[in-house]
Simulated assay, not measured.
Amino acid sequence: MKKISKISLLVSDLSSAAILRAYLIAAALKTLGLEVEIMGFLFGKNLYRNLPSELNVYHLPGKNFPDFFGEMRKLLPKINGDIIYAIKPQTASFGVALLKKLYSQKPVILDIDDWELSWHGGDDWHYHPTLKQLARELLKSDGALRNPYHPLYVKWMEGLVSRADAVTVHTTFLQQRFGGTFVPNGKDICLFDPAQYEPESSRIRYGLSEYRILMFPGAPRPYKGLEDVLIALDKINQPDLKLVIVGGSPYDDYDQQLQQQWGRWIIKLPKYPADIMPDLVAAAHIVVVPQRDTLETRAQFPLKLTDGMAMAKPVLSTRVGDIPKILGNTGYLVEPACPEQIAEQIQSIFQDLESANQLALKARERCVEHYSIEAMASTLKSIISRL
């Protein structure tokens, strides 16, 4: 560790949620006394909003090929860490890192926190264009292959995973597929500390004091299973039960669709800075993470799980991917896409909320031991020492 003083974290798109994983890794590295720089490309209009205020990043505009090569040339000399840590096997992060390694000989760590090809059909995706299609997609100004995020480039990057000097992953699914060291998402357990918050005061602050609160502190997407919770609330039909959605969807109008059909059960809160999230989660009676079973979700580590665990809230989730392993015996699990079981568990939890809160204290203990920033740092220290 004495030979390593600075880590360069490369993020493929600083306007996306990919930067959240980079921030957690940066926080863990800083506890080891290392200097960290976060850099990359901005393919959206602004930096991803849900970030701690102290996070400083260096960014260049994200562009399509061939202009993207010019931006890469500008970024390469700015990367001056002793180790290059690429977030996601994308051209704009891992591809840049491998180019820097070619002439600097600096070691590269690749972090894989999602199966990128799962968004395109996984192993069933293939690219077999006709010669005419290939020419059109390469040469036209809006051709598909000019996009650095085209699945063909993702597939190429996944084929180069072995070129990394070390690989970190955060779920069993990803470890089985790509190898590497298991580094699950850590939580800032000092910030997410239930002893610092009074739940009823938090409910009053956000206008929630009249209700029993099921909270989903994230962006709604169809695979996240919120429809199953809302169908469950239809079945229970108790007007003081509310599903609080924090932030809404930055991707599409899916949250508006939910509002149109189940608006009587939904309270929508705006986006808040990351350091406000513990106060929001404190207002919940139950944190719900009702993931459905899809290619995408099997590879994911939902950060909402550790939001609830760290804040000692009863967590109701589904048997998908690593979720049972993450919760251990400290939460409530149902089968995916099963509103009937969700309804039963909600009623059971509220029938003995005191026992549920006692179990949630054990979830907090488990989070501190296995899913804290400090736990991440311990594993990263051993990886960096080997390099």
Results as ranks from 00 to 15, higher is better:
residue 244 V to G: 12
residue 2 K to C: 02
residue 371 Y to S: 08
residue 41 F to R: 01
residue 154 V to N: 08
residue 61 P to T: 01
residue 151 P to M: 02
residue 363 A to N: 09
residue 351 Q to M: 13
residue 171 T to F: 07
residue 190 C to Y: 15
residue 136 R to M: 11
residue 342 I to V: 12
residue 204 I to H: 03
residue 260 Q to C: 05
residue 327 L to N: 10
residue 284 A to H: 06
residue 307 D to T: 06
residue 141 S to A: 12
residue 44 G to K: 07
residue 177 R to A: 14
residue 273 P to W: 02
residue 254 Y to P: 06
residue 96 V to Q: 10
residue 285 H to T: 04
residue 76 L to R: 14
residue 275 D to V: 10
residue 170 H to D: 15
residue 193 D to E: 11
residue 339 P to G: 07
residue 231 I to E: 15
residue 295 L to C: 04
residue 25 I to R: 09
residue 145 L to V: 02
residue 91 T to G: 01
residue 10 L to T: 03
residue 259 Q to C: 10
residue 339 P to W: 06
residue 330 T to P: 13
residue 375 A to D: 06
residue 215 M to D: 09
residue 245 I to Q: 11
residue 304 K to W: 01
residue 81 G to T: 07
residue 204 I to M: 09
residue 13 D to L: 11
residue 204 I to Q: 11
residue 169 V to K: 10
residue 231 I to S: 06
residue 226 L to V: 05
residue 201 S to A: 14
residue 33 G to I: 12
residue 76 L to K: 14
residue 270 P to T: 00
residue 94 F to R: 01
residue 53 S to Q: 14
residue 114 D to N: 04
residue 193 D to A: 08
residue 300 Q to T: 11
residue 15 S to V: 05
residue 38 I to W: 07
residue 113 D to K: 00
residue 243 L to D: 01
residue 337 A to W: 13
residue 130 T to A: 01
residue 137 E to F: 09
residue 296 E to D: 05
residue 307 D to S: 07
residue 110 L to N: 00
residue 298 R to G: 02
residue 263 G to N: 05
residue 307 D to G: 06
residue 35 E to G: 12
residue 250 P to L: 00
residue 51 L to Q: 08
residue 342 I to F: 13
residue 348 S to Q: 13
residue 275 D to K: 04
residue 251 Y to E: 14
residue 293 D to N: 14
residue 6 K to C: 15
residue 182 F to S: 03
residue 272 Y to V: 13
residue 47 L to E: 13
residue 248 G to E: 10
residue 371 Y to W: 10
residue 357 N to E: 15
residue 261 Q to P: 07
residue 187 K to A: 08
residue 142 D to A: 00
residue 176 Q to S: 09
residue 244 V to F: 14
residue 132 K to H: 06
residue 84 I to P: 03
residue 300 Q to H: 07
residue 74 K to A: 10
residue 129 P to R: 06
residue 339 P to L: 10
residue 51 L to V: 10
residue 222 P to D: 05
residue 195 A to E: 15
residue 92 A to L: 08
residue 208 L to V: 08
residue 329 N to C: 00
residue 61 P to D: 06
residue 176 Q to F: 06
residue 325 K to T: 13
residue 269 L to S: 01
residue 186 G to R: 07
residue 257 Q to V: 09
residue 251 Y to D: 13
residue 1 M to I: 10
residue 108 V to M: 03
residue 71 E to L: 05
residue 332 Y to I: 05
residue 263 G to S: 04
residue 372 S to M: 13
residue 142 D to N: 10
residue 129 P to S: 00
residue 141 S to Y: 04
residue 278 P to C: 02
residue 49 R to D: 14
residue 235 K to G: 14
residue 65 F to T: 02
residue 83 I to G: 08
residue 134 L to M: 05
residue 275 D to M: 06
residue 181 T to E: 08
residue 140 K to V: 14
residue 163 R to A: 15
residue 173 F to T: 07
residue 254 Y to K: 05
residue 286 I to P: 06
residue 345 Q to L: 12
residue 278 P to Q: 02
residue 97 A to S: 08
residue 136 R to Y: 14
residue 161 V to E: 00
residue 174 L to Y: 12
residue 2 K to G: 02
residue 210 E to S: 15
residue 58 Y to K: 15
residue 230 L to A: 13
residue 97 A to R: 03
residue 41 F to P: 01
residue 131 L to Y: 11
residue 168 T to W: 00
residue 19 I to S: 03
residue 25 I to P: 07
residue 121 G to F: 02
